[in-house]
Design a protein around this nucleic acid. Structure first.
Lengths: 114, 114
DNA sequence: CGCTTTATCAACTGTTTAGTTGACTATCTT
DNA sequence: AAGATAGTCAACTAAACAGTTGATAAAGCG
């Protein structure tokens, strides 16, 4: 399922690298919301928030629907999952290496005790 | 353990938002490496790679040790884990909402059948 | 002590990003 | 049709980033 391109990962991680966009994600994890609703808590123009939303959408982290003149945003859990999958690939590999190293060191010290 | 600041998350996700830095992470997941070893595969100056390494280090994703005139880099699995933890917080919440919505819709259609 | 290797620091350039304001599109309301 | 509401597009500025080259530091080797 993954096999995400460099450009896709670039966009997704870049989208997460901003406190406003992370706050938008936190908000959307509790349910869909319109641009106005999303913009309300921020000391920023609505256009500014709209830009952040576009970054999230281009990154594939959110989707938009149409409801009259509103265009609600929805968080896409699958997109988030593919990011944790990428990270975990390398995290688990590194952790396994550390475990093997620990075991090796333990074996060495056991040998010395004898 | 988390409670990571906005600035920390900014640095960490920004560090991941670059194909070169992700390739460095992939390499380091297989074991420590020096700057020269890390720079070798790239069509880029060693200074350029060194900058990327500093970004990863400032983000806390890697640590450095000293071995003679070499300064090997080591991937820090715990730092990666804290990022997946952040993402999963919101991913799981969104997934749960979708499951509840599915259950609700299923209940409604069951009711109609009767 | 020179000389090489490893790596970083400093200054500079081109590109991208974040935010603003003002004008515009599209939909709903009366 | 006129007006209000929701949102985007376009142009601009200030700041941050990616990469370069050149000089420097620090450790190992002859």
């Amino acid at each position: 399922m993954p096999a995400q391109s460099d450009a896709e990962l670039d966009r997704a991680f870049l989208a997460l690298a901003d406190p406003v966009r992370r706050a938008l994600i936190a908000r959307l994890s509790r349910g869909p919301a319109t641009v106005n609703e999303l913009a309300e808590p921020f000391a920023m123009s609505k256009q500014g928030v709209s830009k952040h939303i576009q970054v999230l959408e281009t990154a594939g982290l959110i989707t938009r629907t149409r409801n009259g003149q509103q265009r609600p945003c929805h968080l896409d859990p699958a997109a988030l999952e593919s990011l944790t999958a990428w990270i975990d690939t390398y995290r688990l590999q590194a952790e396994q290496r550390y475990r093997q190293l620990d075991a090796l060191l333990k074996n060495l010290s056991e040998g010395q005790k004898k």
